[in-house]
């Protein structure tokens, strides 16, 4: 469960990226955060992932208030999330398998078990057989699927994605959203920040619409 209350983020230069945003996302829900560029989607993504702290207000994830969380506890909180970044943040000097195994190395899973789970995650996103390839050798859609495999390999309860279909062609974007639907169907909370409205009708998610840092609407498309 994610509960945001009067969430405000003001950057040092004075720009207010979010202003008094409040919402609740229940466990197992699929929610899309939408809005134009600069509406505050990525800021909200970063606040939910504990990458940044709110200027005021609170955001509670599974009972933990991220605004009051001590610094040392943040990494452990992030392990609850599967994070998919707009720029994917893949390690281009490591092969596909090593990229997916990184979150498992962080939690100290034995190498053999980590490899088994990483291969299973790659299989789920349709990258079976590409384990030894370097990310640079993958297409844009495959790179995004690799990012998803890395995000889900730790079996997180919440999948949080920032513009996952940006820069993808329609077919690749459809594949990615089908993967999200599959995870949602097995009970994973899926939260996607996107400015692309064309997928909402297909997935019927709950919509949180942001405009200039304010939440305009929350409902189902």
């Amino acid at each position: 469960m994610i509960v945001a209350s009067a969430l405000t983020k003001r950057y040092p230069e004075g720009r207010e990226a979010l202003a008094g945003v409040s919402f609740e996302i229940a466990d197992g829900e699929m929610a899309f955060i939408t809005g134009h560029s600069g509406a505050g989607k990525s800021t909200l993504f970063r606040l939910m992932a504990g990458i940044e702290r709110p200027t005021s207000g609170s955001i509670v994830v599974n009972g933990q208030n991220l605004a009051a969380l001590r610094k040392g506890a943040v990494p452990y909180l992030r392990r609850n999330f599967g994070l998919i970044f707009q720029d994917q943040k893949l390690l281009f000097d490591r092969n596909v398998l090593a990229n997916v195994m990184l979150p498992l190395a962080i939690v100290g899973l034995p190498h053999r078990e980590a490899e088994r789970r990483a291969l299973a995650a790659l299989d789920k996103v349709g990258l079976h057989g590409r384990e030894k390839a370097l990310p640079i050798a993958l297409s844009g859609g495959e790179q995004q699927r690799l990012a998803i495999a890395r995000a889900v390999v730790n079996r997180p309860a919440i999948l949080l994605a920032d513009e996952p279909t940006a820069n993808l062609d329609a077919a690749s974007a459809a594949d990615i959203l089908e993967i999200f639907r599959a995870f949602h169907q097995v009970g994973v909370t899926v939260i996607v920040a996107t400015h692309d409205p064309q997928w909402m009708a297909r997935l019927s998610p709950r919509i949180l619409r942001l405009e200039q840092g304010r939440l305009l609407a929350g409902g189902t498309a």
């Binding site: 990458i51 040392g72 990494p75 994070l83 943040k89 893949l90 979150p103 939690v107 890395r150």
Partner: peptide, 16 residues
């Protein structure tokens, strides 16, 4: 630096 940034974003502690 990239590897460190990614590791931190996905839950690596400073000790790691």
């Amino acid at each position: 630096a990239d590897e460190i940034e990614v590791a931190r974003l996905i839950g690596a502690t400073d000790a790691f």
